[in-house]
């Protein structure tokens, strides 16, 4: 019985939140990795792209709510998501046309494009703050829990409850659908194949008649979809705040690099690696340990390895370890 309690506590505080956070990071890292693969630079504006997409979705959600639309027990934001994606795609295509294309044509060094993306980051951050402000915004509606802790306890008679928030379930399902669609697109469709060809060998792809501008445009649209979905899922699960999204940049990049930049499969794995290490290192293990340790060995402290404020340090440490020992990432990424 104690052992079951320990497992439930572990599920409730580590596995379920880790899975949801990992899925959000994976979606974000996929966007970063795609841009790196096709456009060959690290996009520092990605966190703010997520913020912009989420903002567009929130505005659409408010519009729907004002018009009296809701989505039953699901959050209204899910219906608004396509609107958010469309607006973000337009913004990214516009940015590409106005900003990035110029440097692409001149074959500017990647580091110049990184600095340019810094400028774009400033502007997007400014736009988001300008339109929606800097406060915390909670836009989740619908049912709060799939299973609440109390119900679970009644059902099983255990001391520990297992709460699964509906936003966590939605995150996993939506992320799974998005990833499935992405891989179907990359592996099965003509455009997807041309994208992979372009990423593997630009010159060969150009020789075989692939239109680079089309590949780039499709990439930006996919990135808009991924970034907006990631941002909305994160926002539903926690809350929306422009600055938090900027800070997500670090774990997202860590995930993409740990998995191997330019490798979509690696980005997903990296997302979960980063998420689980953040959660396990900053979790106070006392609650689990009291069930499995014999009584006289029970810990007195919280058994928390690091305080939650150091979660950045965790993604950073993993990043450094991977870079030192396996510079191309866990899955083979591009090493330009």
């Amino acid at each position: 019985m104690d052992f079951l309690n320990a497992i439930v506590a572990l599920l409730n505080f580590v596995i379920v939140p880790g899975l949801a956070y990992g899925a959000q990071l994976a979606l974000g890292a996929l966007g970063v990795t795609l841009i790196y693969g096709i456009l060959r630079f690290s996009n520092f504006a990605h966190g703010d792209t997520m913020a912009f997409g989420t903002m567009a979705t929130i505005l659409a959600t408010w519009g729907l709510q004002a018009a009296g639309f809701t989505f039953g027990w699901l959050p209204t934001a899910l219906i608004a998501l396509p609107v958010g994606i469309a607006v973000t795609a337009l913004l990214l295509l516009g940015t590409d046309r106005l900003v990035y294309r110029f440097y692409r044509k001149r074959k500017a060094a990647p580091v110049i494009l990184v600095i340019v993306s810094m400028g774009v980051m400033f502007i997007m951050n400014g736009i988001v703050r300008f339109i929606i402000g800097v406060e915390d915004i909670n836009f989740a509606d619908g049912a709060r829990f799939v299973i609440s802790a109390g119900d679970f306890k009644d059902m099983t008679g255990l001391d520990e409850g297992l709460a699964i928030k509906s936003t966590q379930a939605i995150t996993l399902i939506t992320a799974a659908i998005a990833v499935a669609l992405l891989f179907w697109f990359l592996n099965r469709t003509r455009t997807g194949k041309s994208m992979r060809a372009f990423s593997d060998n630009e010159d060969l792809a150009l020789l075989s008649g692939i239109n680079p501008e089309r590949v780039v445009a499709v990439t930006w649209i996919i990135v808009a979809a991924l970034a907006t979905t990631a941002g909305v899922l994160y926002g539903l699960d926690k809350s929306f705040k422009a600055f938090t999204y900027f800070q997500l940049l670090l774990p997202i990049f860590a995930a993409a690099i740990v998995g191997g930049l330019g490798n979509p499969l690696g980005a997903i794995a990296g997302g979960f690696v980063i998420a689980f290490s953040e959660v396990t290192v900053t979790y106070a293990w006392k609650k689990v340990l009291v069930y499995v340790m014999p009584e006289d060995l029970e810990p007195t402290g919280l058994v928390q390895l690091l305080s939650t404020d150091y979660k950045f340090a965790v993604s950073f440490a993993i990043l450094i370890i991977v870079l030192l020992f396996k510079p191309t990432g866990l899955f083979k990424g591009q090493s330009v």
């Binding site: 690290s42 990647p110 580091v111 340090a313 950073f316 990043l319 450094i320 870079l323 510079p327 090493s335």
Partner: peptide, 22 residues
């Protein structure tokens, strides 16, 4: 981090700055 590529150095320094502030 200096032996690594330029974007890796960027991410590494971005991270260390956040850690120092933390």
């Amino acid at each position: 981090a200096l032996g690594l590529r330029s974007d890796y150095l960027a991410i590494a320094t971005l991270g260390i700055a956040e850690i120092i502030i933390a």
